[in-house]
Structures are given as C-alpha cells and as structure tokens.
Design a protein around this nucleic acid. Structure first.
Length: 793
DNA sequence: AACAGTTCTTAGGTA
DNA sequence: AAGAACTGTT
C-alpha cells in the first residue's frame, strides 16, 4: 500500500547534478514560475502564455532537484483531459514511469481515491458507488414524495441544484445557514439531511460528496490530515480561478503544513461561477497565503496582435480584475471579422461556405485543414443549425462535449446491469433496469417490490424474491421477474470467479491466472444478451437504435483495459469522457465552455445577440456579476483564435420554436473598432441567391439588421448614443428593474394573444387578455401590442 | 401493462 | 422544436 514503490531510484544529490533541458526555451517569467519552488506561488497565466509548459517544467524541476519523489507531488486539475495531457507531458520527463505520478488527477478522482481509503470515517464502506445525476434525481424524487411535497411544483431537479450549491460551499446539512431556510419551500435543509442519510444507507455518494467528505475527514481527523500534509510535499493546482469553496478548503487543509502550493490560473477566464466557482479565491490568494510570490505570464504565443487587442478591449469592461497585459511578438495578421445575418440558418450557411473557402486556401491565406477550425457557441442548442448545414454540404465535423459517452441512456442501462452483477444489493441499479427491456413489471409491481423490501429491510432484489414467494406478483410479470432474479444470481457468482472476490482494498491487485472460469468481457456480453437488452435495441426501429448498439460494443471494448468488472465500474465515469477519435480531419463544434484551454488557427463565434450571448438567464440570476462572467466567456472565445476570428449575429432566431427578432450583443459594441473589419453579407444588395431561394424576406427587412442600435453604435466607432428604448425586456442589473409597462398599456403575449395591463408590480404584470382569462405574469413574456408584428411567424 | 396521442415544460455551461 | 409527462384506450 506504499506509494513509494514507484519512486525513481535516484538520490537527491545525483539528481541535482543532472542537466535541466526542460528549462531551455522558457521566458524569464516562466522560468521564475518554475524555479520558485518553496512557499506559496500564484502563477497568473493569461490565455496562450504557456502555462502548461511552465507547470510541467515545474514538476520536472521538483523531481530533478530531488525536492520530492513523484508520489509526493499532488497535482490537481479540473478535467480529465487536462490531467491526461499533463500526465503525458510529465511522462516525457519520467521516461516510462508514467504511472509514477499517482496523485496527478482531477479533484474528483483524487478525492475518490482518498475517500476509498477512509470511507469508514464518514460512515461509508470503501466499496461505495458514485451516483450519476440520474440516480440522484430519482432518489430525490422519492424523498420529495415521501415528504408529501408536490413534485410538480417543487421539482427534484431544483432540489438537486440547491443541494449541489450547498455542497459546493462546503455546507453539510447541519451547517446550512439560516438564511437558506426558505429554500425549497422551507423544506430544503430537512430534505438535504434526509438525502445524506439515504445515501449513507445506500453506501453511495454524489459528485459533491467526494470533495465534501474529504474535507470532513480532514477537519475531524487531524491525524489523517497530517499524514497527507506530510506526504504531499508540493501541491500544484491548475485553473485555480475555477475552484469552489469546498475545493478551496480541501487545498488549504492539505497545504496547511508546508504551504508549498502553486496555483495557476487566470481571473479573466473564470467562467464557472454558476456551478459554485469563486473568483474570489484567486483574487484573495495573497491574503490567504501570506508571503506568496505572484508571477505573471503575459507573453502570448498563440494569437495575433489584432486578436489580443480585441480580447483585451472586451475584458477591460470588467471590474475587480487582477490585471494583466498580454503582448506578443507575432505579426499583425488579420483583423477580427464581424458580420450580421438575417437569421440563424443564413449564419450557418455563410460559416459553412467560409470554412470551405478557407480549407481550399482562398483569401490569399494558406489553406487550413478542417482540424484547424472551430465553431464556438454559447449554448449547445445552437449546434444543431451547424450540424444540419454541415451535413447537407458534406462538411465533416465533430461535436465536442455533447452528452458524454457514459451519460447516454444505453450506457447507463448497461452499467446498471453490470452493477447488479457485481452487487445485487444496488437498489438504484435494480430500479433502473427492472423493466428495461419491458418485462411486464409496471408501476404496480414495482410498488409491491418496494413495499416488501422496505418492510423486511432488505434490498430490492431480495424484496422481489420475497414478493414472488408470497405470490404477490403473478402472471407474466412474475415469471419474468423470477427469470431476472435467477440471471442476476448467476451473473453475480460468475463475477466471483471472474475477478477478485471483494474489492475491499483497492490497492491490492489480484492477478487472475489465465483460463479462469469466465473472463469479464465475455461475462459482460453474456449479461447484455441474457437480459434481453441487446435484443431490445435490435428490435427497435428508431433511427438511433444502430448507434446505440454501436455504443454498447464500444463499451465492451473499453472493458479490455481492465482486469475485472469492479475495476471498470470504478473508473468508468473518470475514463469515458470525450473520445478524441482521430482519423479524418473535421471541423470542431463546441460550446465556449468546452473550448477553454483549446486553440485553433480559425475560430467562428456565432450568435452574438443580446439574450443569447450574454445569456439572459445569467444576467437575470446574477445581475452584474453574471454579465461580467459572460464577458469573460467572450474573452475566452476570442482568445481561442490564433489567426482568424469571425464574430457573427443574426437578426432573427427561433427561440422555443418561435421566431424572435434579436439585437446584436452588447459585446459587439465593446469590440475596439480599430481591430475589426465589418463584412457585408452576400445578398444584401440586390438579393442574391439566398433571398431568391427563400422568397420570404424583403430587402427592407434584411436592412433592419443594419438599423439596430448595436450596429449603428459599432459604425460610429465609440460614439455611444444614450441607450435606446429596447424591446420589452426587463434587465436586472444592480438590482434595479426598469418598469417597461404602464397600467392600461395594450400588450401581446405569444400564447394568450392581446391584452391590457391592469396592474404593475415591479417586473410582474397583471394582464387582462382579450381571448383568455386575466393572469399574472413576468413582463418579459409580453411585448407592446404595436410590436407584435416583430414576431414574423 | 403497454401504447398512442396529447399536453406541458424547457432550451447555460460540468465532474 | 423537442422531449418529458400525462391521458385515455386497448
């Protein structure tokens, strides 16, 4: 169980004498960041300033100077991708001993590892399962109905997000402050406690618990904390601006002894506030760690001066930044390009053409491979327009960060079967698949099973067996249930022969002799066959069925790199993310969030329209803070581009299946015009092919795009007129909502039609509709009656 | 219990 | 627009 068995057999002295090739090619700032090894260090690394290079060189330096063995370095990232990349690059220094950094990983994977060792300290067994969000919601639903709350009014999803937020802030049920007492109809805290209790009974925890349980253990068991404080002599943290309170405490506790902590981050790229990240953590670093050395990496190796200037111009609108000035030695290059379109489809069409042009090498530029181009959207539903368009013109693309492999229905179902085979007591897994495929076990039968299991205090599988014996489940369903139970028992005993009996100690590797009873891959195939799950999809006539069968095959293939099913289940959620299939060159389509940390020579940023980007929801929920986060997202987007960055917006877009006219994003106004070239879309004058083909829009309507305040402001470079009356929309910034309607105003609602405002209370209206009953609603859902035509369809 | 047809909700990012 | 949740029918 020692971590030290992988250490390099080199004495400190021998190492100190070794050359340090990793220092070559570092600029002075990077070099300082690498060589300041002791005490707290904050590496403020702007976009594209070579932070991964500095970070990995730092690890190499720690090893090379003999300061630490690989197992004494704790290196934390947020994503598996980042962890993998770092592992790869560090592997270069370590030679073959890539496994020599056992504590390089994501917050979640390292926490899971720690928690398995000390699970009993928080009332879990080391075999605990990690719930996915599906399981979580299902569990909460049960608790909500058990508490006699109407699940329709107070949804499990809402409760899940409330609890997540609390966990992000490191509040255990007894620590939730009284200011939160009104959450979830005053029952939030109570349900949170019940949820944690239930998790304990199920021997399970959710993602948030991985962190929180570790923090609890550290806080309540100083001896355990001390062990790890001593073991992790040096701590490195990537993307520090994205840490939440729980992660912050986690780090602070671990770094508490020696304070050798190096945090790398960029306050301007903090884009995860909505899931609990605290920019404050990075802004406060010097106060949290007195005597901290702050190193700024400001030389950018990625983008042209125009792109950097545009990005800086936008981000300058934010307050409370640590402040950095990116500079580059690169040649001037192309200005950013800005273009407006009639609607989202035209935008997609135009971008498709641009990509084709660029890949052929027109415009006097070198041809770009499709791999070098990306379309970055604010919200994932924007992707569809591009997929549709790219499919029609046969442009190869890849969507990055869609639903993760392991989040797909068929994968979850298959995993639930595997979980049942490994531990038949896994009630959540049983619930998921009792009636998938259909076994004639509907709501009624499942209630009987639940009731029986509960009254005997046994698992659902056992409860089901009892219910059958008692003759409570009859007919077809009964027979099929019996068969299922038998199958589960059979699989379970096969698991016993296929791998180690119990995975009590995750550090002991049992090497199975060749030719043991059943290997786990065959067993997995058997499970999917015998359960009828494969057959279910084979009989399914929907177009996605073949793809699902493909995914199941992939799942089986993934089993090959594990010794047994248990090990596989353990790592599934940590391994199975974005498969980066190589092969044919493809354009990437992804969200701005998904693009963080990546770079592309050519970047398209569509959908820069107020409400979409910046997102209305973000501004409604978090006001000015939300807007600033959106602005950082714009900054992240622009700084992904190396050579050519094109921003676009559409005048009309379908939202909720309804046409809406859109206003260019306020961020468009914030682009410094000296670095932007405004393009005129084809077909604007004289109605080109597009206009003729669609036959809907008039020239006048098209020209409207160029009459919008945002556009005009852009044209008059920096001469900003007083804000124009905007469409009926209440923007909450600094907590003040502009009342947009007066009593007596005639308004239009897309569902209820025309009506008259009878009362106004802040942003809430009471409207008497002509063809529907009077009702209360939020002002943003109606427009003044004379603007009803602005919704053309 | 299963299915088809209907109505209702939802559309921000992630481990 | 698309999916989930709900309804009524067999």
């Amino acid at each position: 169980m020692s971590d030290f068995n992988t250490d390099l057999p080199l004495s400190a002295q021998a190492m100190a004498a070794r050359p340090a090739p990793y220092l070559d090619g570092l600029n002075p700032a990077q070099r300082k960041a690498v060589e300041t090894l002791d005490g707290p260090v904050l590496m403020l690394a702007g976009a594209g300033t070579g932070k991964t290079k500095a970070l990995t060189a730092r690890i190499a330096h720690l090893l090379n100077t003999g300061r630490a063995w690989p197992s004494q370095i704790l290196a934390v990232t947020f994503t598996n991708k980042a962890a993998r990349e770092m592992k790869l690059r560090v592997g270069g220094f370590l030679g073959e001993a890539v496994e020599g950094m056992p504590w390089l990983g994501t917050f979640h994977s390292i926490s899971a590892k720690l928690l398995r060792r000390h699970a009993e300290l928080v009332g879990l067994k080391s075999t605990f399962t990690i719930l996915d969000s599906d399981d979580q919601i299902r569990l909460l639903k049960q608790l909500i109905s058990a508490a006699n709350i109407d699940e329709k009014r107070w949804s499990a999803r809402l409760l899940a997000s409330i609890i997540d937020q609390w966990k992000n802030r490191a509040w255990r049920p007894d620590q939730v402050p009284s200011s939160e007492a009104s959450a979830f109809n005053n029952r939030g805290t109570e349900l949170y406690a019940a949820y944690q209790q239930r998790l304990k009974t199920l021997n399970a925890c959710d993602f948030g618990d991985l962190l929180l349980h570790c923090v609890t253990i550290f806080q309540t068991h100083p001896d355990v904390l001390e062990t790890y404080q001593k073991r992790f002599r040096y701590i490195l943290v990537d993307e520090y601006q994205d840490t939440n309170v729980a992660q912050y405490l986690w780090l602070r506790l671990l770094a508490g002894g020696h304070k050798n902590i190096c945090c790398v981050g960029d306050d301007d790229q903090s884009i995860y506030g909505w899931r609990g990240a605290e920019v404050g953590n990075i802004l406060r670093f010097e106060r949290d760690f007195p005597g901290a050395e702050v190193v700024r990496l400001e030389q950018n190796y990625r983008s042209t001066p125009h792109i950097l200037a545009a990005a800086s111009g936008v981000i300058a609108g934010n307050e409370g930044r640590l402040g950095k000035t990116l500079w580059t030695e690169a040649r001037e290059g192309e200005k950013l390009r800005l273009i407006g379109h009639w609607d989202g489809e035209e935008e997609a069409r135009w971008i498709g053409e641009q990509i084709e042009d660029l890949s052929r090498g027109t415009r006097g530029l070198m041809p770009f491979s499709l791999d070098q181009m990306a379309v970055l959207v604010r919200a994932s539903h924007q992707m569809r327009a591009f997929e549709d368009r790219f499919l029609t013109i046969g442009l190869p693309y890849r969507v990055i960060g869609g639903p993760r492999f392991y989040e797909r229905m068929e994968i979850r179902d298959a995993l639930a079967y595997f979980r049942l085979a490994v531990s038949p007591g896994d009630d959540l897994a049983f619930e998921r698949v009792v009636n998938t495929p259909k076994r004639g076990l509907g709501e009624k039968a499942q209630q009987v099973i639940q009731r029986t299991a509960r009254s005997h205090e046994v698992s659902l599988v056992q409860g089901a067996a009892l219910a059958i014996e008692a003759g409570e489940i009859k007919g077809k369903g009964g027979g099929q249930l019996r068969a299922l139970l038998e199958a589960i028992a059979r699989w379970h005993s096969a698991v016993g022969t296929a791998g180690p009996a119990e995975a009590d100690d995750d550090l002991i590797e049992v090497i199975r002799p060749e030719g043991a009873a059943v290997n786990h891959i065959e067993l997995a195939e058997q499970i999917l066959e015998e359960s009828g799950y494969v057959e279910m999809w084979q009989n399914d006539k929907t177009p996605e069925a073949p793809g699902r069968l493909e995914n199941l095959k992939e799942l089986i293939k993934a089993l090959e790199s594990f010794d047994n099913l248990q090990g596989f289940l353990e790592h599934i959620s940590l391994i199975m993310d974005n498969d980066t299939e190589a092969g044919e060159a493809k354009v990437s389509i992804m969200t701005l969030h998904g693009a963080k940390g990546l770079e592309f020579p050519v970047v398209f940023l569509p959908g820069w329209e107020d409400g979409l980007f910046p997102s209305q929801r973000s501004m409604d929920e978090s006001g000015r803070k939300g807007l600033e986060e959106e602005r950082r997202l714009a900054y992240v987007g622009i700084t992904r581009a190396e050579q050519l960055c094109t921003i676009s917006f559409a005048a009309n877009r379908r939202v909720y299946g309804q046409w809406q006219s859109q206003m260019p994003s306020r961020f468009v106004d914030e682009l410094p015009s000296a670095h932007v070239e405004v393009l005129t879309p084809p077909g604007l004058y004289g109605g080109g092919m597009a206009a003729a083909a669609s036959g809907i829009e008039s020239r006048a309507q098209r020209a409207d795009v160029y009459n919008s305040p945002g556009w005009r402001r852009l044209q008059s470079a920096g001469n900003r007129p007083v804000s124009q009356p905007r469409e009926a929309r209440n923007m909450v910034i600094d907590g003040t909502a502009a009342p947009a309607f007066e009593v007596g105003a005639r308004v239009f609602h897309r569902k209820f039609g025309y009506g008259r405002v009878a009362a106004v209370d802040g942003d809430k209206l009471f409207v008497e509709f002509e063809k529907s009953s009077a009702r209360h609603l939020v002002a943003k859902f109606v427009v003044p009656a004379d603007q009803a035509d602005d919704v053309p369809f």
